[in-house]
Design a protein around this nucleic acid. Sequence first.
DNA 1: CGTGCCCTTGAAGATCTTCAAACGCAGTGG
DNA 2: CCACTGCGTTTGAAGATCTTCAAGGGCACG
Lengths: 260, 260
Amino acid sequence: MHAGRSRTIQLTSSGVSPRDYQEYAKRLKRSELFRELEKAQCDSILRSGTWQQRKAGALFFRQGDPASSLHLLASGRVKVYHVASEGHRILLGFVAPGGSFGYGTLVTGAARLTTAEAVLDSLVVAWDSETLARLMQAYPLFAIRNLVTAQERVHLLVERLEEFTTKSVDHRIAKSLVRLAGQIGEETCGRVIIDGNFQLKDLAELTGTTIYTVSRVLGRWRRQGIVAKYRGRLVLSDSSRLQHLLGEVAPAATEQASAS
Amino acid sequence: MHAGRSRTIQLTSSGVSPRDYQEYAKRLKRSELFRELEKAQCDSILRSGTWQQRKAGALFFRQGDPASSLHLLASGRVKVYHVASEGHRILLGFVAPGGSFGYGTLVTGAARLTTAEAVLDSLVVAWDSETLARLMQAYPLFAIRNLVTAQERVHLLVERLEEFTTKSVDHRIAKSLVRLAGQIGEETCGRVIIDGNFQLKDLAELTGTTIYTVSRVLGRWRRQGIVAKYRGRLVLSDSSRLQHLLGEVAPAATEQASAS
DNA sequence: CGTGCCCTTGAAGATCTTCAAACGCAGTGG
DNA sequence: CCACTGCGTTTGAAGATCTTCAAGGGCACG
């Protein structure tokens, strides 16, 4: 009853040349997880991990699985979501290259809270619990970096909790768009494009509402020239106006609004 | 405009005898933050912290302050909340002895996301950022313990986000009561008492609703013999029925219900 | 040209908030 | 002893917001 999109998990473990790994490793060392770490330590940590690939649509892990590894995204895009008891899905966010996911690994015996699905073809470095614990003991700064990212996650969650509690759907959608723009958007000529088969469903799951409501809100904004959408691609044409929505509550236009 | 309860911060730093500290230290070593750590390490870590006291109603820190210390509660009770832009308050939870609060300390330059207020007269051990970083480098296991508690915090937040998104107010209130019972409740003869000047406002801020709605829901449950409330004290007389509410959505009784 | 998927739109209705008012109880001061 | 005040709680009524259900539209793909 909750969409049987049970694609097989792909564990292709080759197909990337050593030269590419070098290139990825170089970029990963600049990721948040490695900031302030010495080059030698980064190398050692990266060498202790294993590379994993997933095709778009495949899963890295599924909610309920034993939480046994931490993942650092080298390329592609991953979405992380939680499924509530009645099948309702809550999108926690998208991970861009350099971002990590799959925390909860160090709580012994813990089950995964979320499902991580590749949205685009993706490549990650993964560490299992034992290796991770060993690395953190060897390089305490690495543990601290992990702690910092965990705290940022907490920050984001508190922010969202605040939005769900006190803000209107309009506000939440606007805020989500601004966040998405920063995470996975591409800016060109003042416009931001959010790409990668992006659907209303994603926005609904991010903001805790329905695709019907999202459709109505985006429809209103489209008529006002703030956003445009076509086939899995969303364009923010006027992000200043979006920011504006975040400042003032501005109930105003009930629906039939829109000049011209 | 958001209640000027700006009591002065008390920084009483004595009034507790060394013998008491010994006793508290002994109990703190069994807290989650110190699990699996050797006794000598615990001692060293505890000695690096400073003891702080607050009277009921006083603050340990305020949202917006620079986040400069981690706190471990030795005795008393602390509530942690976030205030949204319009003054709306979101209660993140209560901390019981052995619990810690005031994360976000290691993100350099970060501001406090929350306010921590003593609900009862409280005593804590606190570590500032530099000391904390030094301790974590000296005792990597301590860093890992911190990471684990951060992950548990994430877990709780995701759970609450799920509730806010998909569950009814009834469900959220029931769940909050069950959580509170576990955290700060005292069980006697099958009943659980939640004490300490507990008000409807707290429940409203925990569940993201209004005191009016909370009053109506609790009123219904009172008529059904599930809860009782008198002057800052809440009694859960039938927690099996509460658990039951969490299992089934059970819309049923719209308001005028309640037999005899 | 049909089928499937995603999006849109309308209408009805549930849930929860808001505002206003009253109640109960404790502490205070006459 | 009693009225007064303050705070927390209760209750009613009106109404906003968002969901749900049902149906239709547009576009790609086979």
